[in-house]
Amino acid sequence: MGLLNRLDDPYEGGGIVLGKIEDILNWGRSKSNWYLHFGLACCAIEFMAMNASHFDFMRFGTIPRTSPRQADFIMITGTVTFKMAERIKILYEQMAEPKYVISVGSCSNCGGPYWEHGYHVLKGVDKIIPVDVYIPGCPPRPEAFQEGMIKLQKKINEQAIFNKRKRLKKEQSDDNK
């Protein structure tokens, strides 16, 4: 799948890789993701530990940004309350396309421990914005963060960039057949 894997299968004695422009663009995109860290609650503390020396989140090529306009994906870590939900939506809308969302922790996946009587807790951030990767746990372990990040990279790698509409149409007509 990855571009580098194809080096094992050299063309004309090595050094040359045949592939699509799309692959190299996606490869670049997936390996340098800037993110907007939306730290809300306990999960954010675990994410801080993830960012620190032991787990070193930056090795995925991620750089924390404080502005949504520079971010490729947004990381929702923690409990989303109604008071906060509207702000999340605004920030999400301010991000430039293509944009992705990682939802971290049970709270932002589905309401978590507060799903039943939490009168002020939104039961899942996917009620207001679309989510690409869910990371379960309360709080998720740092390993889970890594797994989630790899999932997102995979997703980006498989995306179409050119002639999206045409391909989409073709897929749809294929489906209809």
Partner: peptide
């Protein structure tokens, strides 16, 4: 305040 008001006290009663 209140952006993380998670209804703790209500929960305790339940």
């Amino acid at each position: 305040l209140g952006y993380l008001h998670r209804s703790f006290e209500k929960y305790c009663e339940q």
